[in-house]
Design a protein around this nucleic acid. Structure first.
Length: 575
RNA sequence: GGCGCCGUGGCCAAGUGGCUAAGGCAUCGGAUUGCAAAUCCGACAUCGCCGGUUCGAAUCCGGCCGGCGCCUCCA
């Protein structure tokens, strides 16, 4: 084996090839090449396609943070049987099918904060490299032509099966129509001859298209070299895809293809999923079958990823995926994403608290981007010591095969330390002027930013998933003012009526020293708020409290909302 | 049949030989609040079962029970 760099002092990575965690060494000192198998773009992406990109996005961020110069490649398979079938079904070209789904894939990636990918090679853009690779294998005697197809001769590769731990005899290979063209059942296609009308490229073996496995060998070689550091993909790709990649590349180059094989666990549909739409709790029998657990796939009803993101927001989904170690199976269901979101909300509240205290925006904090620069010097400060310990534990978890789940635990711990500090130093009130305390606070939030940046979260405020109405804020301000007045007058009946009235609309109030804040709300909330205001105004009028009733109408008028009293009740319109 | 993974509190989930088994969600007390919410404090598990190795195991070995994956396209 080629000599690798000295190991990183602390980082270890699991290797599917050795089935062990190994000290992290690189092909070239200070550099890391990562190749992740991307999607075959014959249809829209589903949530399962996001697992690999999210975890490798974190892996790249962490390696960069640790000082490596990282290049990350995700390939796009834009030529294969399924694409051709899809194109025929829809009466459009294969290229159009691909373009459409690549856009969908990219949109989903960016919604989940995956923005670290350096190269997105497409199989159809690398035909020369692919054909060259096949030709080299044929020339070396590892592959043979048969009736316009080219097959890899598995019998020539004595190491075949080392990744998936299989013996050649136990393999079925592609049966069916191609069996008689092959020398061995386990032989797999490098090049497939084209039928009339199919997309095809010229080659020494006639017109055809590449097999699935060869594109990854060719593209990784083109962009990362003959030996590179990390090759990732879903656990379901170990065999045959990655096994075949190894066979192709290592026979061709006579050297290791990859140092670390990293495979993420698969998403599983949870049978306990509380499906939206399945109202009837009673007819479990029929719906239970449909929700039978199994790997997430289109046939199991996965999909609607864009809708899911619209409902939940990308950050929740990313956080949900990172809570579990990447090699584990994740049971997927929407309530679980919401639960992850509840945890996330605590961080968002902390950021608001930080803003209340300092007037500064958490998202604007510039945090250290390297491991060395981020070290805290706590001195004798117990709080900073505790924060520094959290940071150490976070990094230890990440060092241990990118244990994002363990790392997230430390993030929560750090948030608690900060909240406690704010409480004890009374920072929302008199302590605001304690400049030493503010400095400590800033240090801890900077650390929080530094660590969350490794996970790729909290870089932007979460987008409003509900699509809030622009009237929501002024209407809420009016309600908050009315409630404040009621409270000042010890009229708690009215004050509580307001709070209890907006609660069911998905909006929560938090009374702070400096005023009342509100959170939540979606497109459907406004109507309920208006009805609440109308009811409050009716009550006021019934009590001859015309000051209040007029205030409501006048304040609404300033935001271009008109109330009209009619015999059947009051209606509101916006102009 | 072959290869492999998993089983930690109500739910999710770190921890893979040694301090009182992280953390999140939920629940129950307490501080705080006009009452709430938020925040903080506290309560809440001996790690599927049995046996073995060891001074010592959730962590290693064996058996059993239960769940899952790959062996065909798949992130």
């Amino acid at each position: 084996m080629a000599t690798l760099s000295d190991p990183h002092p602390t980082l270890h990575a699991y290797n599917t090839l050795s089935k062990k965690k190994e000290p992290f060494r690189t092909v070239q000192a200070g550099k890391v090449g990562i190749y992740l198998c991307g999607p075959t773009v014959y249809d829209k992406a589903h949530i399962g396609h996001m697992v690999g990109p999210v975890i490798f996005d974190c892996i790249k961020r962490y390696l960069t943070y640790c000082g490596y110069d990282v290049t990350w490649v995700v390939n796009i398979t834009d030529v294969d049987d399924k694409l051709i079938n899809k194109a025929n079904e829809r009466g459009i070209s294969m290229l159009e099918v691909a373009e459409e789904n690549i856009k969908d894939y990219n949109d989903n990636l960016s919604a989940l904060g995956v923005d670290q990918i350096d190269h997105f090679p497409r199989a159809t853009d690398c035909m020369d490299e692919i054909i060259g690779f096949v030709k080299a294998l044929v020339d070396e005697g590892f592959a043979y032509e048969s009736a316009g197809d080219v097959y890899f001769d598995v019998a020539k590769d004595t190491n075949y099966g080392k990744l998936s731990n299989r013996s050649v005899d136990s393999m079925q290979g592609e049966g069916g129509g191609t069996a008689e063209r092959k020398r061995g059942l386990a032989d797999f296609a490098l090049w497939k001859s084209a039928k009339p009308g199919e997309p095809a490229w010229e080659s020494p073996w006639g017109n055809g298209r590449p097999g699935w496995h060869i594109e990854c060998s060719a593209m990784s070689k083109k962009l990362l070299g003959e030996t590179f550091d990390i090759h990732g993909g879903g656990l379901d790709l170990v065999f045959p895809h990655h096994e075949n990649e190894i066979a192709q590349s290592e026979c061709c180059h006579s050297k290791p293809m990859v140092t670390y094989w990293a495979h993420n666990g698969l998403l599983r549909a949870s049978s306990a999923a509380g499906k939206v739409g399945g109202r009837g709790e009673r007819d479990r029998k029929s719906s239970a079958d449909e929700q039978a657990s199994g790997k997430m796939s289109r046939s199991k009803g996965a999909g609607g990823l864009a809708d899911l993101i619209a409902r939940q927001g990308g950050e929740r989904i990313r956080f949900f995926l990172l809570r579990t170690h990447y090699r584990s199976t994740v049971l997927f269901n929407e309530p679980a994403i919401e639960e992850a979101g509840s945890g996330l909300d605590g961080f968002y509240r902390l950021f608001k608290r930080y803003h209340r205290i300092t007037g500064k925006d958490f998202y604007a904090i510039e945090s250290p981007s390297t491991r060395e620069a981020g070290a805290i010097e706590p001195g004798n400060d117990d709080v900073l010591k505790a924060a520094a310990t959290c940071r150490e534990k976070f990094l230890t978890a990440m060092d241990d095969d990118f244990n994002t789940g363990g790392a997230i635990g430390e993030l929560f711990e750090l948030a608690k330390i900060i909240n406690k500090f704010c409480d004890q130093a009374n920072l929302e009130d008199g302590g605001k002027n304690d400049s030493a305390a503010i400095v400590s606070l800033e240090k801890m939030l900077t650390t929080l930013k530094e660590l969350s940046a490794i996970l790729g979260i909290f870089s932007h405020p979460p987008q409003d998933s509900g699509g809030g109405d622009e009237l929501l804020d002024p209407v809420m301000q009016l309600l908050i003012d009315l409630r404040a007045e009621a409270r000042a007058n010890k009229n708690f009946t009215t004050a509580d009526a307001i709070r209890d009235g907006i609660g069911p609309l998905g909006i929560a109030l938090e009374d702070r020293g400096g005023g009342t804040e509100w959170t939540g709300g979606d497109a459907g909330s406004l109507e309920g708020l208006m009805q609440l205001l109308i009811a409050l105004r009716q009550t006021a009028r019934a009590n001859k409290d015309f000051a209040t009733s007029d205030t409501i109408r006048d304040r609404l008028a300033t935001i271009d909302v008109t109330l009209e009293d009619r015999p059947g009740g009051t209606e509101w319109t916006r102009s």
